[in-house]
Design a protein around this nucleic acid. Structure first.
Lengths: 266, 266
DNA sequence: AAAATAGTGTCTGTAAGACAATATTGT
DNA sequence: ACAATATTGTCTTACAGACACTATTTT
């Protein structure tokens, strides 16, 4: 919550060229990065699911050895979103169902260790949601690349000198975005399979929002939504009364290709 | 907390997909554009205020002679927001109190008249709010540049072959953004001076939202907000009972310079 | 039977919208 | 006095949140 002024807005008072360091005068280059969220059971949270994301260990300076968001340069013949998808697939093997632009980061001091003569990079960052099942298959398993690993979204990099570049700030912003967006848009279903129990759906909301929700009120709200459809099936194998399985039949807010970021519910 | 589930705001339809032509293999270049909104009395709307924005007539191909958003290239030594501010000042003389990143547009077919060998451009678009008083002084007056002029935001370019590039789509998205954001963030005050009557504030909401609001209920809602403070003054000179002037004392959701949870609910 | 989770019913406080009623000014 | 706007009050409805209560399964 940045809150500000009324009469006199604080402005970054730097007219162009005011404080010119000697840096390459090359035009800024463009890169794409992606914050990929999945819900995974967290041993530290008593087995309750929390938000995780895959990170890539840097093998070059700057920030060599530290963890960074997957990403890469934008090539000449692909759209921003295609570039995000391609980088995602190449570095993590994931093909998310939900992908949306997050923000364009272009500050002058994005690398807190600016290298002499290094070119300035503007990063257009996307965020994505994947199911835990997909997440398991692609990264971190036996055959996985040890330079790609899942981390808890809220604590990644802590105790290891932080994440590379300004990626901690980016992840925090993406967390804020998924938490606020889940309250008004249909994105929770991207974490789940085609059918689910109301308890599972509630678990998604609780994990993302970070607070517990009243099961009775949660159920009542969903029942008032015509897009939630009860199936004839029940989830067997539990330790107690088997819960009914539901299906989401509404529009899935899939991958807002461009400006209407997202979610619409017709 | 408000309703969790359904009820997302309507969004503009998604943009068209890409259509690759053979184009130069140069890396995409970066540009900044800005959608600047001001409320101006509209003769076509019976004198009621509507949203207007300054546009620049293109003097070069492509789209020569058509109207476009003010903007320009990003130089090596300025942040994205600084570049938006600078371009704004140079082309329109405006220094907006509110400035926020809108979206990064990077589709392959952004110029619907792709020139052979032209370099692909990724535009990072900002949107801004200015007061009508500022707006009057800088553009379109006697000494104004005739290649810069105010247009109604919702109809600009209609009947003139449309706006240049994909700028109509961009303006529509910016319109959607200001209309949805005014409902939960304190941005209306950026259209007004330090004091205002409740009728003036209501007029702002009505103009942006495009519907009329009940004066009594509007007043009651604002009175429940501690950030609205009554002054001892009244607006004299009206034709009837003089209304009291109020002041907004709360945080002004201004210029989320970076990504941070820059805007908040109230 | 007990435990545990699934699922229903009810009450309360808050807030929005419709709209009647009163207040205060200029003409 | 009258017109026009400002300002207050009242009623209704919707809904979120708290929470008691019932239902159905496993152990």
């Amino acid at each position: 919550m940045s809150q500000i002024f009324f009469g006199a807005p604080p402005r970054p008072s730097a007219p162009a060229g005011a404080n010119v360091s000697e840096r390459a005068q090359l035009p800024p280059s463009l890169a794409i990065s992606t914050v990929i969220f999945a819900l995974k059971p967290d041993p530290l949270a008593n087995g309750a699911p929390t938000l995780w994301l895959p990170l890539v260990r840097r093998i070059k300076e700057p920030f060599r050895g530290q963890w960074a968001l997957p990403g890469g340069p934008l090539t000449a013949e692909e759209s921003l979103e295609d570039a995000a998808r391609r980088n995602l697939l190449e570095t993590t093997g994931l093909a998310p169902a939900y992908l949306e632009q997050l923000y364009a980061f272009g500050g002058l001091n994005r690398s807190s260790r600016p290298e002499r003569g290094s070119q300035r990079v503007v990063s257009i960052v996307y965020w994505a949601l994947v199911r835990a099942t997909e997440a398991q298959l692609s990264v971190g398993g036996e055959g996985g690349d040890e330079n790609v690993a899942w981390h808890r979204a809220d604590t990644a990099g802590a105790g290891e000198g932080g994440l590379a570049f300004d990626h901690r700030e980016i992840v925090d912003y993406a967390l804020w975005r998924v938490r606020t967006k889940i309250e008004y848009a249909q994105i929770a279903y991207h974490f789940l399979g085609p059918t689910f129990t109301l308890a599972q759906l509630r678990e998604v909301y609780e994990a993302v929002l970070g607070r517990s929700l009243d099961p009775a009120n949660f159920r009542r709200q969903l029942k008032s939504a015509p897009q939630i459809e009860a199936t004839d099936e029940f989830l067997e194998g539990g330790r107690h009364r088997p819960p009914r399985l539901y299906r989401y039949t509404g529009p899935l807010d899939a991958t807002p290709g461009g400006p209407g970021p997202g979610s619409t519910q017709s």
